[in-house]
Every structure is written in structure tokens, then in C-alpha cells.
């Protein structure tokens, strides 16, 4: 069996085991409404995961997505509060802010050659700080800013339990997968991640490919911010704090290799649902949310170790196959 398919079956299997486990432990877990809720909760990390998957395929990482969300949301909140700019334009400005954040990341990483995780760790601090600077204050203290306009809040709803964000999640994942598999840009992402030298010899502009990937993350983070704040009908300076972990975790669980070159959006889609199911299950078991952190961290380490082992086994098999062919 092909390695990629095997890995896909493993991540699907992990999801099924998790669902079975929680279903056995809690009677509130396995019902249609809860499952729809899980998919809705998976949506925002999943949408951002599309961009993050692109970046990881190029052998990069982005730790700034949570802060990007906060900044986008806070810019929109300011527009909402202090201007009469219509909601659609406000949303466009928000998306523009996301794109700029991504562009900034891309330039730092691809042009200034900062190691990805240090560069995006730094921008995480910068975006968050700017969010605080422009945060809306009442009597000098930062408060949460309500955004209750009907035309905005509608984005947080849906057709009954089929939420708009769920639809967006599916649509963007499908588009993301098509772009990855059926455009030159998508192919370039893989080649930059797997063998940049070969990519260069084939005339691919490596820096541009990497920058575009970060810009797409910024776009996805902006969408994430819009859907999140529309549902909450408010935002705070703390929005998305620690959130950067989720899309990365979703990608890793879905089989996107942090060494670059392998993985796809379908994998991240499954990974995002896995993470949401995990969070939902932990809540249903009425465990302290703190346990989530511990469990999430352990699962990441377990998956990373598993992937390292899985890849080494596959490599050994390939080597043995090659050596087998050596017998004359």
C-alpha cells in the first residue's frame, strides 16, 4: 500500500477510535447535534489550517495565527465602533489586515532569512502588542467590544445547525485541496518543501512561493477572526491567545510532515475534526479544561514520534527494496 494512503487511514482510524472512546464514556457525545457542533468547532482551526498546511508543506511554520486573528478582529472592532463604514467594507479591511500580517511574516522569513519559528514567534508578539495598543478602552481599561450588528452577527449563524462557518470550512478546504493539487502554485509548494534546489533548477521562485503561502495564512486567519467574532458578537485583545497551536496540531495529526513536502488539506481537515472532537469529548466528560492542554500536548508529541517512526520504517523498507534489486 502507498505510504500516503496508509497514513490517511491511520489518521482516520485515530479519529474513529477517539469518537468510539468518547461515545462509550459519555452518552451526550454521539448524537447528531453534538457531531455538528464538533464540526463547527473544527471549522476555524480548520480554515486557518489550510494556510498553515501550505506553509508547513514548504517546510515552514507559523506561530502567529492567533495574534493575527486578534489584530484583524480589533481593527474591525475599531471601524465598527468609531466609523460609519458599512459592514462589508469593514470585513474587507479586516481581510486586508490579515493579508498584510501574512506578507510581513513572509518577508521576514523568505527575505530576511529568519528561522520560521523565531520569526513568527516575534511577529506573534508584535501583532498581539499592536492589538493591545489599538484595543478599545473604557475609562482607561481594556474592555471587550461588542459587534452586534445583525448583518455581521448573521455570519456566526447558519441554516439551523448547519452553520455558515461549517460551510465555509468545507468550501475553503475543497478549494484549498484543489489549489494544492491542481495549480502550479500547489506543486511549487511541494517542490520548495521537498527539494528547493530542484525547484530552483526548474525555475521556481522559492521566496515568492513562501511569501504567498504566509499571505494565504493571513487571509485564512482573517476569515477565522471574522467567523469567531461574528459568533461571539464581540472581540477582546485576548482573542486567539494560544490558538496558533490548533491549526498546527490539526496538520500534524492529519499527516502533514513538518520536514516539508508531504501532506494535504484533506489530512488537515481530518486533523481539525480530531482536535475538535477531543476538546468536545473532554468537556462532555466534565473534566477541567486544563486537562485538554495536557492531552493535546501529549497527543502532538505522540503523533510526532509516531510520524518519525513511521517515516523511518518506510525509508528502511524502501532501502531494503532497493538493496534487493542490487542482487545481480
Amino acid at each position: 500500500m502507498k505510504q500516503q494512503n496508509l497514513r490517511r487511514i491511520i489518521s482516520l482510524g485515530m479519529l474513529l477510535v477517539l469518537v468510539a472512546l468518547f461515545s462509550a464514556l459519555s452518552k451526550y457525545f454521539l448524537n447528531p447535534n453534538n457531531l455538528l457542533e464538533i464540526i463547527r468547532d473544527a471549522a476555524v482551526p480548520g480554515i486557518i489550517g489550510v494556510g498553515v498546511t501550505y506553509v508547513i508543506i514548504t517546510a515552514g511554520i507559523d506561530l502567529s495565527t492567533g495574534a493575527e486573528m486578534a489584530l484583524v478582529a480589533m481593527v474591525m472592532a475599531n471601524i465598527y465602533r468609531y466609523t460609519l463604514i458599512p459592514i462589508p467594507i469593514m470585513i474587507l479591511v479586516g481581510i486586508l489586515v490579515g493579508l498584510l500580517c501574512g506578507l510581513f511574516n513572509g518577508i521576514i522569513v523568505a527575505k530576511l532569512h529568519l528561522p520560521e519559528f523565531i520569526g513568527t514567534l516575534a511577529t506573534m508578539g508584535i501583532f498581539r502588542a499592536i492589538t493591545y495598543i489599538i484595543a478599545i478602552k473604557e475609562n482607561g481599561t481594556i474592555t471587550s467590544q461588542p459587534m452586534k450588528a445583525y448583518s455581521y452577527a448573521i455570519l456566526g449563524k447558519g441554516f439551523g445547525r448547519i452553520y455558515f462557518v461549517t460551510i465555509a470550512f468545507i468550501v475553503i478546504s475543497v478549494i484549498g485541496q484543489i489549489v494544492l493539487k491542481n495549480t502550479r502554485f500547489g506543486t511549487n509548494l511541494y517542490s520548495v518543501g521537498a527539494n528547493p534546489k530542484a525547484a530552483e533548477l526548474s525555475g521556481i521562485n522559492i521566496a515568492r512561493t513562501r511569501i504567498i503561502a504566509y499571505v494565504i495564512v493571513g487571509f485564512c486567519a482573517a476569515l477565522g477572526a471574522i467567523f469567531t467574532t461574528a459568533r461571539l458578537q464581540s472581540t477582546t485583545a485576548l482573542l486567539g491567545d494560544g490558538f496558533e497551536f490548533n491549526p498546527i496540531a490539526a496538520s500534524v495529526i492529519g499527516g502533514v510532515s513538518l520536514a516539508g513536502g508531504y501532506g494535504d488539506i484533506l489530512g488537515t481537515f481530518i486533523g481539525a475534526i480530531f482536535m475538535a472532537a477531543l476538546e468536545n469529548g473532554v468537556l462532555k466528560l466534565q473534566m477541567n479544561t486544563a486537562y485538554q492542554y495536557v492531552i493535546k500536548g501529549c497527543i502532538i508529541i505522540a503523533v510526532v514520534i509516531f510520524d518519525a517512526w513511521f517515516n523511518s520504517v518506510m525509508e528502511k523498507r524502501a532501502q531494503e527494496a532497493a538493496a534487493g534489486g542490487k542482487e545481480e
Partner: peptide, 13 residues
């Protein structure tokens, strides 16, 4: 490029 198919490699770029 190992992650790509033969055809994708041949026509890369």
C-alpha cells in the same frame, strides 16, 4: 521532487 509523481516532476515549473 520525491513527493510528486513522475509526470509532475517531468513538467515541474
Amino acid at each position: 521532487e520525491p513527493p510528486l509523481t513522475v509526470a509532475q516532476n517531468v513538467f515541474l515549473g
